[in-house]
Design a binder for these strands. Structure first.
Lengths: 260, 260
DNA sequence: ATCATATGTACATTATAATGGACATTGACG
DNA sequence: CGTCAATGTCCATTATAATGTACATATGAT
């Protein structure tokens, strides 16, 4: 009942929450929208959305773009994001690690994190294969659908995990139901191993590898992954895993917060 | 009386404005701060700041970091900024242009924009000189202090410019007073020429070159600049200018919004 | 010990922000 | 033409958010 937003029943929503709901909605749609569309799709009062959008426009958080009064995320957000990136300076090292991984394995390498209670690919370096496996940076995916998901919640207790992940996210895209207990067992195993690999459950031809990146308090904050064709993944399993481990170690220091 | 925030007299500030004031303040300080410090330094009621900070923490807009209850910009902002960057996909091209400029001239090349009513270096590529001229990415500088400043306000009328730029920004760092009329004349000349160059008025040893990048409605949205030692700048003036022009043309398409 | 300062929490008050309409405009479509 | 849906603006109402204040605790100086 926290993280994103809770559209409970009859209470008024707070402006700030609504505002960030709007921003997140635009991010996920990845295109400019009219205030009216936004209001309709997030189920908020039109008058409220218009008011907030105007407020955000005045602050440069949103910008008119695409014509017809459509708005999208604004320059100010880019500046703020850049400041974050600059402070927690993992980007350069991360890019290097992905580069090295993709070069070493010729597979698609990814840097992934949680966004709220969803999994998200933050950065990707495509492999050098003729048929590359594409992934969408920034798209939100249910945690149980991914190998990384097993690692990214491993600091939570079983109860916390079940409370954290929406029940419906255990329904796989093919309609099958992933038993939460199965998922929890895999989380615990992954936590013990320090990695997780499996034949992807969202398609029939990929194998996924993931290793965690932990912060100073040993909480997983991100993962490095490889997405490979199944046969390659199985054939090179040991090599790929050791590559991931090596990359993770090289990133360990970079992901840390530098105090003061 | 818009853009950033107006700490007028006795009215209550709006939460959203206050919130983004906090975010901007953190960005400019470039380090984690305690809510108490923030409140003191931006002149806001402590109780309000605590409330907002907690709200922002819950949304991932702010994060605890640095210990002692200090907070800094959060991961969510990075995601939002990345979405902006991805949508207005100028970054890759921009990086290329700066790379090329720095290589061609061996001088420091910059990509600059306005942030509210201040000038800001967004990206920089240091030149290959033994003594490089350093600049701070993200620091806010009064518009009249910079060559780019002449270009970035050129779409405004004289009256609008004077209303837009705080009076105190015409006071140069050495204490001298830059006559606004002089500045306006330079703006109009720069607009006509399509570039602006001068011996920097913030130090005694650099020469600056700037050319505008315009959007589809011919408004300048950014500049490309070179910062050079004075003698080099004067000696290579024509070459440097033509490089900048060339780079600007190559970026022209990339900075445009791609509709739908 | 005594005082001052920095820091976080709790709560009542009241200015106001979020909301639900009403209203106006436009364009598509029969 | 009339009708409907989409879009934007305006405004009164009331739930609540922003604030001031008091309180609690640590820390350090005197």
């Amino acid at each position: 009942m926290d993280s994103i937003a809770d559209d409970a029943g009859g209470k008024r929503a707070r402006g700030l929450d609504r505002a960030f709901e709007i921003l997140d909605f635009l991010r996920q749609n990845r295109r400019a929208l009219k205030p009216n569309e936004i209001a309709a799709q997030i189920g908020a009062p039109r008058s409220s959305v218009y008011e907030l959008v105007n407020l955000l426009l005045r602050n440069g958080i949103l910008e008119f773009t695409g014509g017809d009064g459509r708005v999208f995320l604004g320059r100010k957000l880019y500046f703020l994001g850049a400041a974050y990136e600059n402070h927690f300076d993992f980007t350069r090292e991360c890019e290097n690690a992905l580069e090295w991984l993709a070069g070493e394995t010729r597979e698609t390498a990814q840097f992934c994190m949680l966004d709220g209670n969803k999994y998200m690919v933050v950065r990707v370096k495509e492999g050098a294969r003729p048929f590359r496996i594409a992934t969408d940076v920034g798209r939100l995916i249910p945690i149980p659908w991914t190998a990384s998901g097993r690692l990214l919640v491993s600091h939570l207790s079983n109860e916390e995990i079940l409370a954290f992940i929406p029940k419906s996210d255990f329904r796989l895209p093919n309609g099958e139901w992933l038993e939460p207990q199965t998922f929890l067992a895999e989380v615990r195993q992954a936590e013990k191993d320090g990695f997780f690999t499996f034949n992807s459950i969202v398609d029939s031809f990929t194998h996924c590898f993931a290793v965690p990146l932990k912060d100073e308090s040993k909480h997983p904050v991100a993962t490095l992954c490889l997405v490979t064709p199944r046969d390659d993944g199985l054939a090179n399993r040991d090599h790929y895993l050791s590559c991931l481990m090596k990359a993770a170690v090289s990133l360990r220091d970079a992901t840390r917060t530098q105090p003061s």
